[in-house]
Design a protein around this nucleic acid. Structure first.
Ligand SMILES: [Mn+2]
Ligand SMILES: [Mn+2]
Ligand SMILES: [Mn+2]
Ligand SMILES: [Mn+2]
Lengths: 232, 232
DNA sequence: ACAGTGCATTAGCCTAGACTAAATTTCAAC
DNA sequence: GTTGAAATTTAGTCTAGGCTAATGCACTGT
């Protein structure tokens, strides 16, 4: 018979699949492959679970798997990943702006909600917020069409002593660290000058826009992604 | 060793379990048992799936199962069910009030979100709304402590001809019906007088507060839950 | 060239939660 | 009381997505 199929109703991805796709996206954002063990660590599952999932995902055409090398997203997988990232970041923005959430608490909430919200709800939230371009941690929000801004950012921990920077984006997964950073005034948009750095993975010392200084240990300085502001 | 266990971290119910508990709650709200086939129909699963789940739920102490008779919620199951119903109804209220959702569309959205939101998010939404007591369909919202208002309502289809009623609550699961009812001005709070009813499951004729009349077919009249307003 | 090591994969098992088909129980009707 | 229909449960199967233990591959160093 070989009946012509009507345009398949989108099979709706599971929560697990959606989180795997996001992980692959993040791990390949600098190009290259995402490895089994990196994905396993990011999602806190055992490596064989990843192998199993990668097999299923490549059968459904969401990723390309090169055995023993790693995986990359197909265009279809990338679209799905960017959609999830848009959901996540719009949710974080909405919770922060409209429901008084602390920026340290939104990530964990968004991590669950992103799998349950409809496209329609996300667009209503985006609309209520005025189509925000960045989430509360400074990460760019993909458009509904699946475009995302790519910036070259350097972690403060790896910045050049003497450079003038703008803090652009902060790693969003650690509530306690975020809480502390906010107290220190280290939030996206702040200007800073790198005064010094201690050796042996020591702290970075910065001067803020208001003239005060901060001593930032390496662990935190690795979470602070900056762009150069020399030309400004 | 027999170590003393600290107060078990709540095992966090699955989406399925949460929906089964809600079904049992609704089916037993008039007392008695929820039957396997009623639950199966309400959740659109096969009866053996229900039997299987009922077994698991009675093992975890959420329901009491009398074989071949049906099930009832334990106090623990009832608490969990009421918590889900609170979440569902707060979500419906929030989507309607704050994000411009049509009252016909909120149910399906809430049906998914109720399993993903945290207690904290629900309470923030409730707070933003001013602790609403009824959802957009007129259903009472349980308190955070697990209290729910119980009213004796009669479906318009079974009301007495000649009586004066207030439309209190409308079945919330059918977007198209809800859309139509809103057009007809048949929304919670409206006063109506039952003028007549045609025989053989025919329509009920009502006069609204503004003097206009409506002819309501039985299928819809079964969704309109009213309380008497004779004394007012 | 080859041994060793570390990562990746396979093999095999488990649970939740669906399903269908078969067996069992209940209950109403005779 | 027996019988038959309807509801319920059991038996057996399936998929998704985890896990551990065992095996296989690839690169590094000699
Ligand atoms: Mn986040
Ligand atoms: Mn997630
Ligand atoms: Mn509802
Ligand atoms: Mn639900």
């Amino acid at each position: 018979m070989n009946t012509i199929r009507s345009p398949q109703p989108p099979p709706s991805l599971t929560r697990s699949v959606e989180d795997y796709l996001k992980s692959v996206f993040h791990l390949t954002s600098q190009g290259g492959f995402a490895t089994t063990s990196d994905i396993a660590e990011m999602l806190d599952v055992a490596p064989p679970s990843v192998s199993g999932m990668m097999k299923r995902l490549s059968e459904t055409g969401l990723i390309e798997h090169v055995p023993y090398r790693g995986v990359q997203l197909t265009p279809q997988g990338r679209r799905a990943a960017l959609q999830m990232i848009r959901r996540h970041r719009i949710l974080e923005s909405y919770l922060t702006s409209k429901l008084g959430y602390d920026w340290g608490d939104v990530h964990v909430e968004a991590e669950r909600l992103e799998h349950a919200v409809s496209e329609k709800l996300i667009e209503r939230m985006a609309d209520a917020l005025g189509e925000p371009r960045y989430d509360p941690h400074g990460a760019p929000i993909p458009t509904a069409a699946g475009e995302i801004e790519e910036a070259e950012l350097v972690p403060l921990a790896e910045s050049e002593v003497g450079s003038s920077l703008v803090l652009q984006e902060v790693g969003d997964e650690h509530p306690a660290r975020l809480h502390y950073l906010a107290e220190q005034g280290l939030t996206p948009g702040v200007r800073l000058t790198v005064i010094d750095r201690q050796p042996f993975n020591g702290p970075t010392i910065v001067r803020l826009g208001d003239g005060t200084t901060r001593v930032v240990g390496q662990e935190l300085a690795l979470l602070l992604f900056c762009r150069s502001s020399d030309g400004e």
